[in-house]
Nucleic acid binder design. Structure first.
Ligand code: FES
Ligand code: FES
Lengths: 153, 153
DNA sequence: TTTATATAAGACCAATAAGGTCTCATTTGT
DNA sequence: ACAAATGAGACCTTATTGGTCTTATATAAA
């Protein structure tokens, strides 16, 4: 019951890109080094982030990654779910084949509740917010007032 | 990021025992069959439940399991954590060796928050409550008014 | 236009964890 | 004593995670 390494790495990566600002091209190696992510593994993770349009990847010499959205509009949930898929917590929630009475089960209802709670909280934290505080791999960054606050989407 | 099978089985098992009432001895096979849990696997799970004194195991012919506490005093959280250990969600929360700035990290703080939220919600649901509604493997049971409501511990 | 640098895509591999079984010992009712 | 049940832990199988490798492709710069 824990976030995968890939998920944590993705968060770090997006946080690093957020600090540099939307639209800034950063080499993969720089990110890997600063965020302590295995270089090749980051490549794989970045591809997933690109698939959901969070970043854009440019190839060739002087290639790298570019954040495509404003940090204030990116939620923690989005980044996490881009990597590990929609959070479910237990199997009954997704596949109704597991339990006999799925859909009408007191236990299941509790799991759905905590799952929604968890997703809501993660959805309520933007990378702009994270940037205003100290984090691993990153000193806090002063963010213009306009860009603080909760994510829109 | 999901509850293990063992965790789900444990919940079913305790729910079944709750329906029979505290102090009632039930054979392992009966539980395994009704709750659709592999017999031998249930044995292993039961041992973990016994270790935290949720149930008591009696050996020998006509042996089986006995619920040791009132369903209204057993929370979902307790049963789950008896099996999978304390819920953590991400590694930084437990082992500070993973990230560089653990203890003072915005990301980490969010994870701690959602983790506490999740644990609180699960802690707020008793098996007596679960019994009043329909569940997989179990028809709803009428529970005396006195025994409904939130868990004490 | 060649070369060096960088990523893409996916196959591939190693380590860990989950899910479950088996064996042998022990306990207890009859 | 014997049959019926569980205990404890080794053991096995499969799935997931975490990560690397290989070949191909794109681009900047010489
Ligand atoms: S639907 Fe799975 S526990 Fe009830
Ligand atoms: S402490 Fe692990 S992400 Fe910051």
């Amino acid at each position: 019951m824990r976030l995968t390494r890939a998920g944590e790495y993705a968060v770090r990566c997006v946080l690093y890109l957020s600090a540099k600002g939307k639209g800034t091209l950063i080499g993969r190696k720089e990110i890997a080094e600063h965020c302590d992510i295995p270089d090749k593994f980051l490549a794989k993770i970045a591809q997933q982030l690109a698939r959901v349009k969070l970043i854009e990847i440019s190839q060739g010499a002087r290639g790298g990654y570019v954040l495509k959205r404003e940090p204030r509009d990116i939620s923690l949930l989005e980044v996490v779910e881009a990597i590990i898929g929609e959070i479910a917590l237990n199997d009954c929630v997704t596949s109704s084949a597991v339990c006999r009475a799925s859909g009408n089960c007191a236990v299941n209802r509790v799991w759905i509740k905590v799952r929604n709670q968890l997703r809501d909280t993660l959805a309520g934290v933007s990378f702009a917010e994270l940037l205003t505080e100290d984090s691993c791999f990153l000193a806090p960054v002063s963010v213009p007032l306009d860009f603080r606050g909760k994510p829109k989407r």
